[in-house]
Structures are given as C-alpha cells and as structure tokens.
C-alpha cells in the first residue's frame, strides 16, 4: 500500500503530520512531497518516508500524470484548519484515489469532488483573477464538445449536401 502526503505547511506542522500518517498507516510506503527548505530536515527526522521535491520539472500536468501512474491508495493533504485556498486538494482529487486533508491537530476531512469545500475556494480565486479570454475559451470548448457537436452532427451533412454540386461562380475582384 502506498500513501502520498502533500506537505504544504510549516516545518513543525509537517513533522507532526508525518508522524500521524506514519502512525495511522504503519505498514504503508509513505511518499511525501515537501519544499526544498524543509526536505532534508524532515528526511533526517523521518528516515522511513520517501521525501520528494514538490516542484518537479515538466509542469503540473506531467507531475499529476506521474503520480497517477504510482497508484497511491491514499492521498493526504496538509490542512491548515481554515477554508482557505489549497490547490493541492485539486491534485489529490486528480489522482483519483481516496483523499483526506489532515491538520496538525489530527482533524480530518474528506476531499471529494462532491464536496464544495474541496474545490470551491480554488474556483472562487480563479474566477476572480481569470483572464476573460481564457474563460471564453473554456466556455467555447465546453459548448463545442456538447451542444455544438450534436448540432454539427445534424447540420454538417446537410451543409455538404447543399454545397455539393453547386455551380462555381468565383467572386469578382473588387
């Protein structure tokens, strides 16, 4: 069994959290992702945890893909206790496994698509700062993949039939 832990928190809290994770999944292989400053310090305190860099080269998508291939049974995200933004909740969701957020005091909350708590703060922040063009692109892509596709399946053959066999009359030069 493999457990992934995202340590987006302070050094002491991360130490506390790793201890709790280790205690709860004592037989599991724990893989933790920590920032460059804390990693060596945490490694010295938790030699049985595979501590990795939380900013791997190759971009976000490649990072998530690589993690999905590792097939973690549980994904744990450090939770600060509040409702504020924590993008790694989305990463945990994208891994497609059971995901929980645990704070330094051991409080636990389920991370799931059906729980607005998991993605709501992220959506709100993105919504406020989003580039209108990007939003429009996203909306267009969603429309194209659904209603647009249905309409196209119906009208493209009709359009081809209407165009086909028409006499060629090139427009005159202006």
């Amino acid at each position: 069994m493999k457990v992934a832990v995202f340590l987006t928190t302070g050094r002491a809290a991360a130490d506390e959290l790793l201890g709790r994770v280790r205690a709860r999944w004592s037989m599991a292989d724990v893989v933790a992702f920590a920032n460059d400053e804390d990693r060596d310090w945490l490694r010295a305190r938790h030699p049985d945890v595979d501590l990795r860099r939380d900013k791997p080269p190759g971009g976000k998508v490649a990072f998530v893909r690589a993690l999905r291939r590792e097939a973690f049974a549980e994904v744990v995200v450090a939770w600060h206790g509040g409702e504020r933004l924590q993008p790694l909740r989305l990463v945990a969701l994208a891994l497609g496994r059971r995901a929980v957020a645990i704070d330094e005091r051991g409080r636990e909350r389920r991370v799931a698509w059906w729980a607005p708590w998991s993605w709501g703060p992220h959506l709100l922040r993105r919504g406020v700062t989003a580039d209108p063009l990007q939003v429009a692109r996203l909306g267009a892509a969603a429309y194209r993949a659904t209603i647009g596709l249905l309409l196209a399946v119906a009208w493209l053959p009709l359009r081809l039939w209407l165009l086909r066999g028409r006499r060629h009359r090139p427009g005159r030069a202006a």
């Binding site: 063009l133 692109r137 909306g139 267009a140 892509a141 429309y143 309409l151 196209a152």
Partner: peptide
Amino acid sequence: NPMPGNLHHA
C-alpha cells in the same frame, strides 16, 4: 489560435 470559436465544428 488563442480565440474561442468554431462552436459548430465548421
């Protein structure tokens, strides 16, 4: 192309 569009797969 950065623009949204081609909504009906034309």
